[in-house]
Design a protein around this nucleic acid. Structure first.
Length: 437
DNA sequence: TCTGGGGTCCTAGGACCC
DNA sequence: TCTGGGGTCCTAGGACCC
C-alpha cells in the first residue's frame, strides 16, 4: 500500500501559518520579478486565477475581489517543507520526497486501517507545522496520486466523490462498484502522467474518463502512444510498476535561468546576467558535491512579444575536465554568450545548465599521452571555492563574486523585483516573528 | 509596461560500426 | 540494372511532473 501526502496549496499555506489573517481570503504567490502566479489558494482558484497566469492579467482582482498577492519566499517554503517531510517520514518504513510539497510513503507490510493512519498524519502535521495536507492511499503510486486528487476534490466539489471523505481517501479500501464510480467521475487528465496533449489525443479517441481508460486495450494503447501510458494503465488497474524511491539517484543536470525584469540588449549586460546564473549554478553543484562535464547556455527574446524580431539560441560546451569551479563555469558561459549574441534584439530570458553531472572526485583522469607529467589529479573542491561559499553563506549571496557577474547599478534591472516578500521567519534571526501583548 | 523555474523520461532519427 | 541488416550511441525535441 502506497500513500501520497501533499500540502494543500503549499506556498499559500506557508504564508498563512505566519499571517492567519490570510485564511479564507483569495491569495496568490508570485514568481520571480512578481511576474506570474505560481500558487493559488482555493479562493483564488475560484476567482478563476490559473496556474502560471501572468500577474498583470489578474491584477484587477486586487481591488475588485480583495485578491492578495505575495512575492515567493522560497527560503521559508524550503524550511517548512523539510519540517513537514521529517515529520511524515516517521509513519512509514520508506519515504520518497517527490517535490517540495509532496512525498510518497510505502506502507508495505504495515497493518491497520490506513484511513485512520492518514488522519493521524494529517492532524500531526497540522498541529506541529500549521500546514494542511491531503492524503491518498492506493495499491500503486498512480492510484495513491488519484486518491490524493479525490481527497482534495471531495471537499471542493461536494457530491462528485460520494464514496470518499475529504482530505483522506483510500482507493484500496473501495469495492469494485465504488471504485468504478470514482473512475467514472474522474477525467483522464486527472491522472498522474496524463497531461494536456495526451488528454486531447485520448479524448479524440473517445477516452474521456478514467473509467474509459482502464477498459482500453493495453497493446493498442502502447502501440498508439508509448510505454509511459502503458505503465499508467497497468498502475490504474492495480499492477504496481513504480516503486517508492527511497534514495533517489544524484541529479543529472541542474539549471539556473530567469526572465529579466527588463529586456537586455547589450552584450555587456547579457554577460553580466549569465555570469550571475553561472556562478549560482556552480555553487549549487558544489553543495551537492557534483561536477559538470559540459555547460549548456541559452538566450532568448520574448515569444510573447509577437512584433519583436525573435532570436533563440543555445549552445553546449564540453569541459576538458569535470568542474564545479565558478571561474571555469563562468568563463564557458561567457564564451557561449559571445558566440550567440546578436545586436538589435531585446533578450528576455537566459539560463545556464550544468549537464552530465557526476560526483566530485570521481572524474575521469586524463591520459598523459605526451609524457609532460602535467596531468592534474581529479579535481578536489578548491579551497578558493570553499572560502567563497563560506563568505557568501555568512554575508549573503553575492558578497563575493567573479568580476563579470558584478552587478552594475544601472536602472536596477534584472535585480529581481520582489516587492511583496514576507519575512523569512524560520531561517533568519533578524526576521523572526514578534509577538505583541 | 508586465507572460515561472526548475526537473525527468521517452522517442525518433542520424551517424557509425561490422 | 540491382544498393543489406542489425546493432549501438548520441542528440534534439517533446511530453510529462511540481
Amino acid at each position: 500500500m502506497f500513500a501520497l501526502v501533499d500540502v494543500n496549496n503549499m506556498y499559500v499555506s506557508c504564508e498563512r501559518v505566519f499571517r492567519p489573517s490570510l485564511i479564507g481570503k483569495p491569495v496568490v504567490v508570485l514568481s520571480n520579478n512578481d511576474s506570474a502566479c505560481v500558487a493559488r489558494s482555493n479562493e483564488a482558484k475560484d476567482l478563476g486565477v490559473k496556474m502560471a497566469q501572468p500577474w498583470f492579467q489578474v491584477r484587477h482582482l486586487e481591488r475588485e475581489a480583495g485578491l492578495v498577492a505575495l512575492s515567493a519566499n522560497f527560503e521559508l517554503y524550503g524550511d517548512m517543507s523539510s519540517r513537514m517531510m521529517t515529520l511524515v517520514a516517521q509513519y512509514a518504513p520508506r519515504q520518497e520526497v517527490y517535490s517540495i510539497d509532496e512525498c510518497f510513503l510505502d506502507f508495505a507490510g504495515v497493518p491497520g486501517d490506513m484511513v485512520a493512519v492518514g488522519r493521524e498524519i494529517r492532524a500531526r502535521v497540522l498541529q506541529w507545522t500549521g500546514l494542511p495536507t491531503s492524503i491518498g492511499f492506493g495499491p500503486t503510486k498512480t492510484l495513491a496520486k488519484l486518491a490524493n486528487h479525490v481527497a482534495k476534490m471531495a471537499d471542493r466539489k461536494p457530491g462528485r466523490y460520494d464514496a470518499c471523505h475529504a482530505q483522506v481517501c483510500n482507493l484500496g479500501a473501495l469495492d469494485s462498484a465504488a471504485l468504478d464510480a470514482v473512475f467514472t467521475a474522474s477525467d483522464v487528465g486527472d491522472v498522474w502522467g496524463i497531461g494536456r496533449k495526451l488528454s486531447a489525443r485520448l479524448n479524440e479517441g473517445g477516452i474521456r474518463t478514467v473509467h474509459d481508460l482502464v477498459r482500453a486495450d493495453v497493446a493498442t494503447l502502447r502501440a498508439q502512444f508509448s510505454v509511459v501510458l502503458e505503465k499508467t494503465l497497468l498502475e490504474l488497474r492495480g499492477t504496481a510498476c513504480l516503486d517508492v524511491d527511497h534514495e533517489p539517484a544524484a541529479q543529472q543536470q541542474m539549471m539556473c535561468s530567469r526572465s529579466f525584469g527588463e529586456p537586455v540588449t547589450t552584450l555587456a549586460s547579457l554577460i553580466e546576467v549569465v555570469s550571475q546564473f553561472a556562478s549560482r549554478v556552480a555553487e549549487k553543484a558544489r553543495q551537492q558535491q557534483a561536477a559538470a562535464c559540459a555547460v549548456h547556455v541559452f538566450i532568448t527574446t520574448s515569444p510573447y512579444r509577437r512584433d519583436d524580431r525573435q532570436h533563440s539560441q543555445s549552445v553546449t560546451l564540453p569541459l576538458v575536465r569535470a568542474s564545479a569551479d565558478t571561474r571555469v563555469i563562468v568563463a564557458m558561459a561567457v564564451h557561449a554568450v559571445q558566440q550567440m549574441y546578436r545586436p538589435g534584439f531585446e533578450y528576455a530570458k537566459a539560463g545556464v545548465m550544468l549537464v552530465d553531472l557526476r560526483p566530485q572526485g570521481q572524474q575521469q583522469g586524463e591520459l598523459d599521452l605526451f609524457g609532460t607529467g602535467e596531468v592534474a589529479d581529479s579535481a578536489e573542491p578548491s579551497r578558493l571555492m570553499e572560502a567563497i561559499d563560506t563568505l557568501n553563506q555568512r554575508f549573503g549571496r553575492g558578497a563575493v563574486q567573479v568580476a563579470s557577474a558584478q552587478h552594475q547599478p544601472r536602472n536596477g534591472q534584472h535585480a529581481g523585483k520582489q516587492q511583496r516578500r514576507s519575512p523569512r521567519y524560520t531561517t533568519r534571526l533578524g526576521e523572526i516573528a514578534t509577538a505583541r501583548a
